Amino acid sequence: PQECLLLEPGLNEIMANSLDYNERLWAWESWRSEVGKQLRPLYEEYVVLKNEMARANHYEDYGDYWRGDYEVNGVDGYDYSRGQLIEDVEHTFEEIKPLYEHLHAYVRAKLMNAYPSYISPIGCLPAHLLGDMWGRFWTNLYSLTVPFGQKPNIDVTDAMVDQAWDAQRIFKEAEKFFVSVGLPNMTQGFWENSMLTDPGNVQKAVCHPTAWDLGKGDFRILMCTKVTMDDFLTAHHEMGHIQYDMAYAAQPFLLRNGANEGFHEAVGEIMSLSAATPKHLKSIGLLSPDFQEDNETEINFLLKQALTIVGTLPFTYMLEKWRWMVFKGEIPKDQWMKKWWEMKREIVGVVEPVPHDETYCDPASLFHVSNDYSFIRYYTRTLYQFQFQEALCQAAKHEGPLHKCDISNSTEAGQKLFNMLRLGKSEPWTLALENVVGAKNMNVRPLLNYFEPLFTWLKDQNKNSFVGWSTDWSPYADQSIKVRISLKSALGDKAYEWNDNEMYLFRSSVAY
């Protein structure tokens, strides 16, 4: 590609939709070469300064400071330590791993069909083939991996386009969902002041979706909304933040926050679980009234959910574990990228498509890292959202599997949720969690119950496949010279610098 592309739109479109291996590689590498390399010296300084700040406030390091958001002291029976968070994340991840490994094996087999000769049947997945710029969410792999393609499509993007949905309609439908469970409408100022579409040439905007509580009843969302099912669900997520903000607005200023950061992320995700169900999509006209649910549509639905929800958990866990180790000084600065990709291979089963030396800073190419967000919130929120969903479905008197529950129109479920939201940070999160779900610790069981039918199906699908991955295989081993030459021509001086062995191999191949 010759034109100058922004991340959004532009590069993200390539990473969402392109099936051209080399075009995807160009976009993936260009973003890291342009952005990651510029941020490397800044990120090194950032780590030093943030650690100084944390230690001045009596924390061991900046990662310890972040984990302090979960700490509860002096509340008998509800205490929770920063170290306990690490333990809980690690042991819940071990419980999730078998499901993830089977999802990984299934996706690898489907990617082998889409990119023959580029995928190893026992290796890691190349990082640039996973549906977005970071491989964070695998949602866009659904069209390549759908188990029963002859069934009606449960990705309702086409239906939204056919019905001329726009950003306003998407957010109005999200608002209807919250109102149906007894939560309030958005304010008039929300509709007047939010930026729900890309302003285009009028001004440059950071398009990463964010929710804003500017105080004095001024709530806004910034999002360059596209007419897709993914953005339909994202709208519910962002509006969930606003509902939380509005619910605790009466609290004293210092207590106007989520019980912990994971709670804030979980609220909209609960609504997304219901909004994505075929039952709900039928009720708002995005699935045909004669759409029939059966075992095959159930597996299609659960796989689509797993690509988004299960596929991202190792990504989140590994990223934050790397940062915690960096802040603690356990990874020397001259080994940041080496350790990043070692951990990516070992924990996530994902491999870099071309080698990256220590001039890169791949983590900082992600919005949340370069903008100083702690990231473990996206792991804890996933466990909380299924715990909350299970409890709210019980309040809504849902009968049947958890993945079929739609809590819309249940004011009982809405009241149970609101009673927790309005507390803000005035009560320990362990107590707030217990008030809703009857337990005071994160628990992976509801998530595993939700995906149980899919897990059973995946194990059957993978019975003749290798489950797990070898960390030795690299996608650039066989194609390295071709890849390096093409990237050198595209990126010039910003391309990865060849070492002596690679230059010798190149000259030998040319001479041959």
Rank of each mutant, 00 (worst) to 15 (best):
T210G: 07
N153M: 06
K304R: 06
Q188P: 00
Y378P: 02
M229G: 08
N153R: 07
D372V: 01
S374C: 03
N153I: 05
R256N: 04
N257E: 03
W212G: 14
F137K: 06
H368P: 07
H264F: 07
E269M: 06
T139L: 04
T308Q: 01
Y373I: 05
Q251V: 09
H208V: 04
G189M: 14
N193H: 00
T139K: 09
R256W: 13
K304T: 08
H368G: 05
H368M: 03
F253E: 14
T210F: 08
H368W: 08
T308W: 03
P209A: 05
D218M: 15
H264L: 09
D230M: 08
H208K: 10
S272G: 06
D218A: 15
K216Q: 15
I309V: 06
I309S: 06
F253A: 14
G217M: 15
T234Q: 06
H368F: 05
H368Y: 06
E265F: 04
T234E: 07
K216C: 15
F301Q: 09
N153D: 09
D213Q: 11
E261W: 08
R256H: 11
D213P: 10
T308E: 01
D372A: 02
R220E: 03
F137R: 04
S374R: 05
D230K: 06
G189R: 15
K216F: 15
R220M: 13
M246R: 10
A249M: 01
S374E: 04
F219E: 14
D213H: 13
G189Y: 14
E269L: 08
N257V: 05
N257D: 10
D245P: 12
D245M: 09
F253R: 12
Q251S: 11
F137Q: 03
Q188M: 03
G189T: 14
M229Q: 01
F219P: 14
H241E: 01
T139R: 08
D230E: 08
G189I: 15
A250K: 12
T210L: 09
K216Y: 15
M229F: 04
L214H: 02
F375R: 03
Q251F: 14
F137C: 07
F137V: 06
F253K: 11
T234D: 02
R136L: 05
M246C: 10
S374Q: 01
R220V: 13
Q305H: 08
L214C: 02
K216A: 15
D230A: 05
T187G: 10
D372W: 00
Q251T: 11
D230I: 02
R220Q: 13
F367V: 08
Q251E: 11
G215E: 12
S374V: 06
R377Y: 09
T234L: 08
T210D: 08
L214Y: 11
E261Y: 07
A250E: 08
F253C: 13
T210V: 10
H208Y: 09
R377D: 01
P252A: 09
G189H: 13
M246Y: 12
G215N: 02
L233F: 07
G217S: 15
R381V: 07
N257R: 02
N140C: 02
F137Y: 07
F137N: 02
R136A: 05
R377T: 07
W212D: 14
Y373E: 05
Q251G: 10
D218E: 14
F301R: 05
E269D: 10
H241Q: 08
F301M: 06
M229H: 01
E265G: 08
A250N: 05
T308I: 07
Y378F: 08
P209T: 10
Q188H: 11
T139Q: 05
N153Q: 08
T308M: 05
M246T: 08
F375I: 05
S272W: 10
P252H: 07
P252R: 13
R256G: 08
H241Y: 10
T308S: 04
T210R: 07
Y373L: 03
N193A: 12
D230W: 03
N193T: 07
A249R: 15
E269V: 06
L214R: 14
N153S: 06
Q188D: 09
N140D: 04
P209I: 10
F253Q: 13
E261C: 05
S374W: 04
E269W: 09
L214N: 13
K304Q: 03
D245V: 01
Q251A: 09
V206F: 07
P209H: 10
A249G: 08
E261D: 07
H241K: 00
E269G: 02
Q188N: 08
H368E: 08
K216R: 14
A250F: 05
R136E: 06
D218T: 15
D372H: 01
H368Q: 08
F253S: 12
T139W: 04
R136H: 07
T210N: 09
R136G: 07
I309M: 07
E265L: 06
W212K: 12
S374M: 03
H264N: 09
E269R: 07
N140R: 03
K304P: 02
Q251W: 14
F375N: 04
T210P: 13
E261R: 05
N140W: 02
R136D: 02
M246K: 14
K216E: 15
E261L: 07
R381K: 10
Y378H: 09
N140P: 05
Q188I: 02
F219Y: 11
Q251H: 12
H208C: 11
D218G: 14
A249E: 11
F375A: 05
H368V: 06
G215F: 01
E261F: 02
W212N: 13
A250V: 03
P252D: 00
N193V: 10
H264I: 10
A250I: 01
N140H: 04
Q188S: 07
G189S: 14
H237K: 04
F375S: 07
H368K: 03
Q188W: 11
H237G: 05
K216P: 15
Y378V: 05
Y378W: 07
K304H: 08
R220I: 02
S272P: 09
T234A: 09
D372N: 11
A249C: 09
M229Y: 06
N193P: 12
V206N: 05
R381P: 01
K216T: 15
T234G: 07
R220C: 11
P209L: 12
T210M: 03
G215H: 07
F301K: 02
D372C: 01
Q305G: 03
F375L: 08
